[in-house]
């Protein structure tokens, strides 16, 4: 049975809170509620996000507790002053909420110090308990997110890259159908450019989060960075090609040029499918290759076209498309080689 992602997260939250309660009960801790609160708050959409939030939470709680304690000794122990501090801390907690988790947590801890100052007193015991319970809660959240219905960003990324590559493949097919078959440019083509960037942007965000998952593995980060760079370059050139296509509506090709373009399309699609197979962990059926040979023929042939008085503006656009497709292919081949 496949559970909905919110159901998985809900079960994670319930188990994390239960674990915090059990641990608190077992060790007869008086401030278990802090661990429960932290466990509930740092549990996020994925394991990577939970790790990120846990680290931020621990770090900023320590800083906040230190600064808050110092302030507690500096500020006169009068109710009015303590209320003013609570209000200032509330202001900054809300100000950073949704914008900077770290700063929000820093001011939350200062807020807690002064709430305790109003209700009872802020002592060194409370200071230690706050830090220790935060640590316990964060560890519980990380362990729960890793073991109970774990949601790994890496798996999500592995699903997103094939989606992106399929969209890229579709765009390449469309571009060549306009170039070779002289079809009118589809209106949707320009939207494809936006969709490709949208997919890429999502992917990049996930990649950034994936770094946290890799804190516990040996996956080389440099390699991932290079893969993303290649993908960025490939998309940059492909979207440039897409934007030029509507201007090539009336560009007439010779038969030889058409044949060579078909060969070029073939190589590019093979390269893309090799990459697709490699990412999906399948056996790669072909070899990736460069399009330089066929490109030289195309460039020479296109120069002949220029001599035959074809429109100069169209020719520039055509030349740019070829140049960008070359760069696109180089980036795809680079991606493949980095990923081996």
């Amino acid at each position: 049975m496949r559970l909905h992602v919110t159901t998985k997260l809900a079960i994670q939250a319930a188990i994390a809170v239960a674990l915090a309660a059990i641990i608190g009960h077992y060790f007869a801790e008086t401030h278990t509620y802090w661990a429960m609160l932290v466990a509930m708050f740092v549990l996020s959409q994925s394991w990577a996000e939970s790790i990120k939030k846990s680290l931020q939470r621990i770090g900023m709680t320590v800083c906040g507790a230190v600064v808050g304690s110092l302030l507690f000794f500096v500020v006169p122990h009068v109710l009015l002053w303590e209320i003013v501090c609570v209000l200032i801390a509330t202001f900054f907690t809300v100000y950073y909420l949704g914008n900077s988790y770290s700063w929000s947590m820093f001011f939350t801890t200062i807020l807690v110090v002064f709430i305790f100052a109003i209700l009872h007193d802020w002592t060194f015991v409370l200071f230690k308990a706050r830090i220790a319970e935060t640590f316990v809660g964060a560890i519980i959240a990380i362990i729960t997110a890793a073991l109970v219905f774990p949601i790994r960003i890496e798996e999500d990324v592995k699903q997103t890259i094939p989606d992106l590559l399929t969209a890229v493949e579709q765009s390449i097919t469309d571009v060549f159908s306009i170039l070779i078959a002289q079809q009118k440019p589809k209106k949707i083509l320009i939207h494809q450019s936006l969709d490709l960037y949208k997919l890429f942007y999502q992917l990049r965000e996930k990649y950034q989060l994936m770094n946290y998952e890799h804190l516990f593995t040996k996956t080389p980060r440099k390699k991932i960075k290079k893969i993303m760079l290649n993908l960025d370059i490939a998309l940059h050139y492909l979207t440039s090609v897409i934007e030029i296509m509507p201007k090539l509506e009336n560009f007439m090709l010779t038969d030889e040029l058409r044949e060579n373009l078909q060969a070029m399309q073939q190589i590019m699609l093979i390269n893309l499918s090799c990459l697709q197979q490699q990412i999906e962990m399948q056996r790669v059926s072909d070899e990736v290759s460069s399009i330089n040979d066929v490109l030289t023929v195309i460039q020479n042939e296109s120069c002949n076209l220029l001599r035959q008085n074809c429109d100069k503006g169209d020719w520039i656009n055509f030349y740019a498309v070829i140049f960008y497709l070359k760069r696109f292919n180089e980036a795809i081949v680079g991606f493949y080689r980095e990923n081996v």
Binding site: L9, A10, A14, V17, A21, M40
Partner: peptide
């Protein structure tokens, strides 16, 4: 609190 945690996320 455990039940509340479940529903708060669900």
């Amino acid at each position: 609190l455990i039940i509340l945690s479940f529903f708060a996320v669900y």
